[in-house]
Amino acid sequence: MLKISEKSLEATKNNHHVWANYMKRWSPDNKQVFYTTKKNKKTAFDSVKNVAVERHFYRVQHLTPEHIGMIKNFSKKSPKDLHEQHMSYLSDFILMQQLEAMYRKTNVKDDTADKMLDAWRSNGIERLHSVHEKEVQIVLAGLAGHDLSVLDDSKDMCCFMQFFAQQITRTKTFRDTVLTALLKKATTDEEKHLAKMMKECWWFISYMFGMSMGRSIFLDRHDDNHCLLVNDTDIPFITSDQPIVNVYQALTDEIKPPEDHECDMYYPISPSVAYMVNKSNRFPRGKVQASIDFVEEMNIKIAKRANVHIVGSSEESLSPYKKYIGMNLSAIKTS
């Protein structure tokens, strides 16, 4: 008889939309960080477990045939192999949904079955992100130590690019930005209905977007400049609840989606190291020494694209940037 562990029945209610372990590189004690709170943008010093987290953020919702049709239509715009990969992931969720429906029809109450289904709804997407996180732990540690050779193997690079893209699309900031822009643009009943449908199955669509973006960044790796930015200045890099941001210099309209060539994706890894995928040739490949002006520019852009939290290694490192928090999303809401 198959024995089911208690751990497998545990439902993760509080979902991090930024990896908690990632933020520890800003922690003086490997547990707590300085971050801005939602109320009055005050600075708190607390566990990384309490930053960039929301109850049931990734919770799997019921997919109707209309939801499934919309997801498939989006996916069909992808290359054939990627579309098939999307559909493979989708089929897993559809199968579990069908099994749940069969169980409900029996009218038999089973506590273990109910716990399994609740855990599946709560943990389904979170577990996918956990896989990506485990795959890049050694890579991130190497990059934090200024070692770019950890990306020499194409498999490691592929895993890192998949992880990298998911750090863009999995966040609350990305969700709110996309859905708010979609609703603002909607003028017909059909467009408004599409926006509503998108919101209802965002838990899956956001992951699918990350898969597509990661594939694209990986395939373009020989054309784009990937560089490691080393910060030896007196001003540390900060991060936020949107840890990867587009810092393309000529991008002045923050509401209009950027063109493909208008993407310089910046990812702070620690107070002294950041990774950048730039299409503008702003920096060459390899290690680059960051200037104090560049650090200031990056910290401001990180703060502007944050939802609530900017995260730093000290209260002093956050103070100059509090006034910029959320400017990007506010501009979309008021446009």
Rank of each mutant, 00 (worst) to 15 (best):
I205W: 06
K185N: 07
E200R: 13
D153E: 13
S154C: 00
M213H: 06
F209A: 13
Q167P: 09
S216W: 05
M157Y: 08
E191T: 02
R175S: 09
L183P: 00
K184G: 11
V150D: 01
L151C: 05
M208W: 08
F204N: 06
G210R: 01
T177N: 10
E190V: 06
D189T: 07
T177Q: 14
K172V: 07
W203M: 03
S149M: 03
N225S: 12
A181L: 10
H226P: 01
D153W: 07
K196Y: 13
D223R: 13
Q167C: 13
T173V: 11
S216V: 10
K199I: 00
K185I: 00
K192R: 14
W203N: 02
I205D: 01
H222K: 08
L179K: 03
K196Q: 14
L148P: 06
L148F: 11
T180R: 03
R221Y: 04
T169S: 14
G210K: 00
W203Y: 14
L151F: 04
T188L: 04
K184A: 08
E190W: 03
R221G: 04
Y207Q: 09
Q167G: 05
K184M: 10
E200P: 00
S206P: 02
V178G: 10
F209L: 15
K184C: 07
F164S: 06
F174I: 02
S212R: 05
G210D: 03
R170P: 05
M208A: 15
D147A: 04
W202V: 03
L179Y: 02
K185C: 00
D153Y: 05
M213F: 12
W203P: 02
H226R: 04
L182R: 09
S216R: 13
L179A: 01
D153I: 07
M211C: 11
Q167A: 07
L148A: 02
A195V: 05
D152W: 00
L182W: 01
A186Q: 06
I205F: 06
T177H: 06
R170L: 04
S216N: 11
K172I: 07
